[in-house]
Amino acid sequence: MNTQLQLHKPVQKRSFLDKIKPNPKNAGYYFIAPIMVLFCVFMVYPIIRSFILSFQKFDAGHYKFVGFDNYILLFKDDIFLQALKNNFWYLIIQVPIMILLALILAVMINSQFLKYKGFFRMAFFMPAVTALVAYALVFRLLLNTDFGFINFILSKFGLPRVDWLNGEFTSKLSIIIAMTWRWTGYNMIILLAGLQGISEEIYEACDIDGANAVQRFFKVTLPLMKPIILFCAITSTIGTLQLFDESFILTKGGPDNATISVAHYLYNTGFRFMKFGYAAAMSYVLVIIIAVLSLIQFKFAGGDE
């Protein structure tokens, strides 16, 4: 070591210590450092690697660089396009229905006169916490054409049996029903939280103006709830576009790809067909779609952040 440097060292050290001592200017870094390290190691790095992978082809134990081939192939892949279509179908039908339903339930549970609120909240929230194995099994038992409970009830009322999991339309419907069952309560809780945040004074002011319940809902509740509804819409959109469970366990994507989701096809491509590069490319296309949709929703709802 250089002697000159050693001479300077004590001085440098003290000022360095002063610098790194937590103060209002640098404390942010301290608070953020642990999670950022975790993010870089366990998120950013794998993301970069899989991104590189999306330009490669894996065969016979080796990765080969293929440029944009995977991406180009993707737009000629009719199953991928079908899966995209299915995802949009779910998005357009299921998300609005679910959020509307969640909003209605939330408003009801928020009623002043209602007793046992805790019970209702839990009852509606429960589906969101089901373990996947149970969810799969129970819903297959419920939706089975010949032995399922739903058809059992239908036939008790003299209605025809419905081929829940095999019809081109009914299978999509089944997935939508299952998703709605699972996630309505979750969104309801978030919306309920928002409703409870609207202060009584605003409603009281409204009461003096002589607005009825419906007017009150549209004039006061809805505008104030906009940011929360937006929050639900965006998280649901992301959830729907990454939909995997229902397609995988209820219909296996069938019949004839009528219900397969992009994430399900992605899993098949990577883990069943072992085309890792192709699967990676698919996931980045999905990311772009999600990003664009979220942005549109923000702009549409006029959110500022």
Partner: peptide
């Protein structure tokens, strides 16, 4: 008989469908 899953096959076999 269109069995959509393993469980429904077993059920159908069991119930004489």
């Amino acid at each position: 008989y269109n069995n959509d899953s393993w469980d429904s096959l077993i059920t159908a076999t069991k119930n004489g469908t």
